[in-house]
Amino acid sequence: MKLFSLIFLLVMTLCADNVKVYLYTPEINVNNFKSLKMSFDSYLSGYGNYELQPFSDKETFEKYLKNKNTIAILSSWHYREISKKYNLEAMLVAKKKGSVTDRKILVGQKNTLLKGVVTSAYDTEYTNELLNSITDEHSQELSVLRVPKEIDALMSVGFGMSRFALISKDTFVHLQHINPVLSKDLKIYYESDPEYRMLLACNETDKEVTTLVSIFKNMEFSSDGKKILNMIGIDKLVVFNIRNLENRGDTK
């Protein structure tokens, strides 16, 4: 009887579906998904049957959001676009260097006309939308070259492969620190309003979701969790509440 119970338990464990956290954000280096998934899965498996399912394209990601009990990590730009359609509610927001918001900037060599190639690490749709919005639709003469990382986008301007780079202000400040010689000839031409960093959202709050949200919230307190958060370029995930809305301009 004991053996039967053990076998039954084992079968149940094997058959149990893992709860998946879906991730898509145009701001993460997609090439790194293999390492990211392995690290996340190893971390989450310590707390239960959870796993990360990252996506490199928006359409496939959205197909999975149709399921119930969805937990997703996505950019605030994307959240704004689809939250009503998929009934998503933001639970956590990413924080880096003390701020839950970030700005995107268009950087170029000094005295450059607004035309030519823009390097960007974001997907093309997001890049075009950002360019139109921050340049007041004066970006018709710009063509986009997608590169793997924000630092590539910025270095491309410095070494003559592009005229402009569309990057986060964080990356620019970082390069100014590492290489003042390269960045001293660069100028910020346009700057977006502050936008929330990535969000963790769900469409139904049950016990399982609450547990998972709490696991993500506590990641910053373990060294493994911290490393994984660094992989997606953030320091921690904090509760998203109305105060975040009030502080939206905190990095201005």
Binding site: N29, N32, K149, H174, K227, N230
Partner: peptide
Amino acid sequence: TSDILSIATEI
């Protein structure tokens, strides 16, 4: 630096 985790294509 911790940047390696977000910059590396493959670890």
